Amino acid sequence: MAEIHWEDPFCGEGNNCFRIGTDAEGNAYIAVAGQEDRPLVDSTDALRALIREIKAGKADHLL
């Protein structure tokens, strides 16, 4: 696996913390803080699109 450069954990209310990371090959990673050995992986463009959709409220029904 490529070397992942993780951002500091982002924690919402309670104990819901996750981390976002990238590697030199253009991949983006999302993992639950403390479980970085099991990330979801996709392109940075896909991660960017996901974050935009969440900010636009398109995932509110999941909460």
Rank of each mutant, 00 (worst) to 15 (best):
G21S: 13
G57V: 07
A31Q: 14
Y29M: 12
A49P: 00
G57N: 04
V41I: 15
Q35R: 14
D42K: 08
D60Y: 02
P9R: 01
A31L: 10
R38Y: 08
G34E: 06
E36C: 03
N27E: 11
G57Y: 02
P9I: 04
H5K: 15
G57S: 03
Y29P: 12
A46N: 11
P9C: 05
G26P: 11
R19H: 08
P9G: 07
T22C: 06
D42C: 13
G12L: 05
E53N: 07
Y29S: 14
W6Y: 10
I4V: 15
R38Q: 14
R19N: 14
E7D: 15
A46P: 00
A2F: 06
C17V: 10
T22S: 07
Y29K: 09
E3P: 02
L40Y: 11
G34N: 12
D8Y: 10
A59G: 05
L62R: 10
I4S: 07
D45A: 14
E13A: 09
G21L: 09
N16C: 05
F10P: 00
L40N: 09
F10Y: 14
E7W: 03
L47T: 03
N15Q: 09
C17S: 08
A46M: 10
L47Q: 05
D8Q: 10
E36L: 04
L47W: 02
L63E: 02
A28H: 04
R38M: 07
E13G: 07
N15L: 03
R19F: 01
D23C: 14
L50Y: 03
L47I: 03
I30C: 15
I20C: 08
F18K: 08
K55M: 05
L62K: 04
I54T: 03
Q35S: 12
G34F: 06
I54L: 05
R19C: 15
F10M: 12
I51P: 01
A46G: 10
T22V: 13
L62P: 00
I30T: 05
V32Y: 05
I30V: 15
D42I: 04
D42Q: 10
I51Y: 00
H61G: 06
F10L: 15
A59H: 03
F18D: 01
L62H: 06
A59K: 04
L50T: 03
T22W: 01
L50E: 13
N16A: 14
E53R: 03
K58F: 04
A56E: 12
M1Q: 09
S43D: 09
A33C: 09
S43Y: 01
R38T: 14
G26F: 04
G34Q: 06
L50Q: 09
P39S: 09
S43H: 10
P9L: 08
D23I: 09
L62F: 09
N16T: 05
D60H: 02
